[in-house]
Design a protein around this nucleic acid. Structure first.
Lengths: 223, 223
DNA sequence: GATTGAAAGAATGTCAGACAATCCTGTTGA
DNA sequence: TCAACAGGATTGTCTGACATTCTTTCAATC
């Protein structure tokens, strides 16, 4: 038995590292929405060459995390409530379906992982660590999507994940939202663990709707 | 009044042109599924430099039209029936929702466009021009998605469009599928024109299910 | 004869530097 | 005050290069 199971799985390239760093920078709000990203500056800050950076930017563009207008370069789009609402609607469509399917198909080992992810989120919520809340919540749903039996559903959801996390990070800061979120996620977990497809769908829908309401509250609060 | 309305809308960059060319090449089957794409060869064939090509490849990778493994380069993935099925399931989720919403919200002018797109598909079907069938069918659904009132739903669907078209092109070649497809699309149009949300959903679901059956038939036929 | 090992060749990952086309900005002139 | 214009800044794109990492071929060994 070799121990380096996750060492060779995927050689980390500069491109991937750059994408990850930029994504994190956008999540964390380092780049203001609407601000333009100057290639030469990013190269200097990240320590990569312009070709590598531009490849990374294309990947980010595909994730809709940045916009690229020819001859004007990349910029961080300002997310409107209009778009946030649209994202939550699609989230509802995807996550409700995934949770329902997952309840019927998840294997015991993965169910255990899901429980661990839920516990990790609870821990992050109690610590009020917003970055950890975002990543653990994303992990929780990643497991559900990964076990819904439809890889394309998972892939589409992952394409939305960046922007979901963006809003999640901001609305979690709202008073009491993290704990409420935990309770809703627990309900989803319980339904899936019980193999109750209908309940899983219901709990998932409720969670998204509450998250959406929290996001709206946040967006209104800064307008 | 200037006449160059569509000349300056978006300066066509080499990158965009390269993406389009490669996409078409994959659709048309020029690159066999599973075959590897050698950068230097593509550069020579397309007449672009390696940096530009690599940017284009990143965009295609985001569309899942090609796979890129570090140090092994890009390749055209072989689509399994497993994945095709997953795509049709997500299509059902997205298109049914879009058709339903569209029935309630589409403005008259866009409805007219939809009718024109339907007519164009009918014309392509009668000509047995499979390439035109693919593009006109894509246009038809693009209009529906563009008028469903949710830009993110549209965007997600567009992300799937490349692979949808891939299967569409192949299953349309089946005996009678094009005409059957037209009848189903006509039913969708009628329901939307009547503003009947429920009927639109039903017709859309039926269309996807039939398309899926046709795709399965095609996949089985080549196994 | 089959398997292992190594070396040559090919392809990718990444960088540096360059130049034209385009956009933005501040200044000048009417 | 407004418009035209230069200048700088920035992007789009190319060429060329080199280290690293596959892939494949060929030989040596069991």
């Amino acid at each position: 038995m070799s121990l380096d199971l996750n060492l060779r799985v995927s050689p980390r390239t500069v491109q991937q590292a750059t994408v990850d760093k930029l994504r994190m920078a956008i999540f964390s709000g380092l780049f203001q929405p609407g601000s333009r990203l100057v290639e030469s500056q990013l190269c200097a800050q990240l320590g990569v060459s312009r070709p590598s950076l531009r490849e990374a930017l294309r990947s980010l563009q595909a994730e809709r995390l940045i916009e690229m207008v020819p001859n004007r370069g990349p910029s961080v789009p300002a997310l409107s409530w209009e778009e946030a609402k649209a994202i939550y609607e699609v989230r509802e469509l995807l996550e409700v379906e995934a949770a329902g399917r997952c309840a019927a198909t998840i294997p015991p080992a993965q169910l255990h992982e899901l429980r661990k992810a839920l516990a990790a989120f609870e821990e992050a919520a109690s610590r009020q660590d917003s970055m950890a809340q975002v990543t653990t919540a994303a992990d929780f749903y990643s497991i559900i999507l990964a076990n819904c039996g439809n890889p394309v559903l998972e892939e589409v959801h992952r394409g939305l994940l960046a922007r979901i996390s963006f809003f999640r990070g901001r609305s979690m800061a709202l008073q009491g939202r993290a704990h409420g979120s935990f309770l809703e996620m627990q309900a989803i977990y319980d339904a899936i663990a019980a193999g109750d497809e209908k309940a899983a769908r219901k709990a998932s829908r409720k969670h998204v709707l509450k998250a959406r309401a929290a996001a709206k509250k946040f967006m209104d609060g800064m307008a």
